[in-house]
Design a protein around this nucleic acid. Sequence first.
DNA 1: AATGAATGAGAATTCATTCAT
DNA 2: TATGAATGAATTCTCATTCAT
Lengths: 203, 203, 203, 203
Amino acid sequence: MPDSIQEQTIKIRREHILGVAARIFAQKGFHAATIKDIAREAGIADGTIYNYFENKTALLLGIFEQMRQSLAQQPLEAFTTHDMRSFLKHYLQQPLMALRGDNFELFRVVMSEILVNQELSALYRQNILEPTLALAEQQFRIWADQGLIKSARLALSIRAISGLIIGLMVEHVLGDQALAVQWDALPDHLTDLVLNGLGVNQP
Amino acid sequence: MPDSIQEQTIKIRREHILGVAARIFAQKGFHAATIKDIAREAGIADGTIYNYFENKTALLLGIFEQMRQSLAQQPLEAFTTHDMRSFLKHYLQQPLMALRGDNFELFRVVMSEILVNQELSALYRQNILEPTLALAEQQFRIWADQGLIKSARLALSIRAISGLIIGLMVEHVLGDQALAVQWDALPDHLTDLVLNGLGVNQP
Amino acid sequence: MPDSIQEQTIKIRREHILGVAARIFAQKGFHAATIKDIAREAGIADGTIYNYFENKTALLLGIFEQMRQSLAQQPLEAFTTHDMRSFLKHYLQQPLMALRGDNFELFRVVMSEILVNQELSALYRQNILEPTLALAEQQFRIWADQGLIKSARLALSIRAISGLIIGLMVEHVLGDQALAVQWDALPDHLTDLVLNGLGVNQP
Amino acid sequence: MPDSIQEQTIKIRREHILGVAARIFAQKGFHAATIKDIAREAGIADGTIYNYFENKTALLLGIFEQMRQSLAQQPLEAFTTHDMRSFLKHYLQQPLMALRGDNFELFRVVMSEILVNQELSALYRQNILEPTLALAEQQFRIWADQGLIKSARLALSIRAISGLIIGLMVEHVLGDQALAVQWDALPDHLTDLVLNGLGVNQP
DNA sequence: AATGAATGAGAATTCATTCAT
DNA sequence: TATGAATGAATTCTCATTCAT
């Protein structure tokens, strides 16, 4: 039942390659990075990479899958116990906070390719975007039924929220200074914005 | 004052090439598209492209510039006369509605490269993102001073709004069905969301 | 009998192009220089050059021919009246002194192509090298018959002398400092060297 | 100490490519020769050449280096034991005799590029010309001090001698018949010429 | 005669991928 | 399983030359 040492070794090597590839892709971009770059940095031969990955694109998919798993680490159900404000904050915070350190540069590359690569874009939609939307939908539906939030065009609202996250990430990696400085304040601020809007409500 | 026929011809040819390039880039992506593809489709020789554009990247920059100009067509000042709700709706509507027809596929490619190409990303920031943010900031500042909107972290709010736009565009081109179906309803819906939030406000 | 104004204009234009071409070739080298470079610098259109010269190589041949003519300016017969030492000095001096100013850089290019271009090499041999050798041969033969110089292998001696000139020019353009500094002293020094050799002759 | 078979193979392949390149360059000239020509003739793929040489120019540098090494084979010190005449003859003979067989055509190409290529010209000056001049200078200085040769402008004399060599090689590859026929007689003849000059010395 | 945009063959170089060792 | 040399298709870009205006 426990993986054989054999399998363990393979897994470790695979992850090592993936880690190096992520670094190199983040540095140079997917197209500019070469298999040779990655192999040299990983201390292995070019050909060895092909024992672990079918081709260069598979490296990107692998990186993507790693990111997905690390996100999925945080069981989504954990959310559901919270109240509305907590849920929303958590929902916003999780992806925003993931955009730190190495991921910052990596996000550029991965998102850049997602936009253009069929396979990757499908993976993103099916494995990240849609589950996330579904989770929110399920939760928001409950609150809408309870009259806590507006129920009109809930689907659009939900998409707006995840769009908010994606768009802010994009602005961030494009070098917006205000975001860089106040990044940590975002989850709270956005939570309020999403719940109450920008307007001042007269009693 | 009138351009010479000579100059007209050059401009037309330039725009023809740019149009073809946009189509091909949108179809195949920037990297997969070749100069030969574009030349063949445009009915000219490979070398001719280089009489009009310095290199392949310049084609992308040219496309980008065209998009920028078509956006800038709508003078931003036009906005300022409106009331808050109208302004906001217009502010959201303009870019969202630009994402139609040919632009839909083109947005993928251009945004994909913006994320990864220094030059393009700088152009986007300086010529589109920052002016747009500045316009909103100026206007929102006024309303904040009038007590119409919350003044806390206005910079973040503004970035959230433009992030909203960008993110929804990304979700849209990634193939989200709900967005595809209700795209036209977005400006109104978002305007409400941004002003009043998702929550139901108890009197 | 006098050239028509027409023909004068053509000749002047031709020489203008040639002058510019020489400058550009000298600056960039024959291969790196483009027709566009030359046309732009000459203030004419690319195509115009082809009204005066068959192709790019013909420009080089034209430059070469100009050089030849300027050398031929000095009628070789003028030499023959002098005594042996004067003749020799003159014989050496003429080409060596021609390697000044603009010609310095031009020599590189022309000699470089002579070595590699059939047509140019034939022109050089037939129009410059061989006539020069023939002149010397004729003169030296006389002196040999008079017992003034050694008559053994006169052909080799003559080739040695012109080789001396060519080789020193090559060393000069390759950047030899000693030659750069004492270039003007060469004719006298070489004359002595050729006549008396390096050795000290014991009486 | 013994190179691994691996390294041997690499060295052999490198030399094979270099040999083919030399032949092709000699046939067609450096610019007219293409990487494809060389690869095809060498029986390898285009890309393989780039596993051994950085670029086309590096092939020329490699050829040059091979020539240099084959010249350097003859340790220069060997000269110094000889008397003046022997030294001089050897000094002249070595390069002149190197200009045989395959080298004949190769000399054209290499010299042609030396005149025009910065890197190559620097290599030639530093690795061939200057060491050769320095050797002669050191030796001639001794003899000048001993009163055996004229000491005036020794630097010029030395440059004249190496210029003699270079120039004769150039005349030879340009197709001079007299030189072709009597090439083997050159060292002796030149030695006499350099030492005693052309003139007949009256007792 | 002058123009200069169009041409398109051609060249160097890159690099993902393969496969014999 | 690891290696890394070999491959060769593919791509961008150049530029001498042509020719319609």
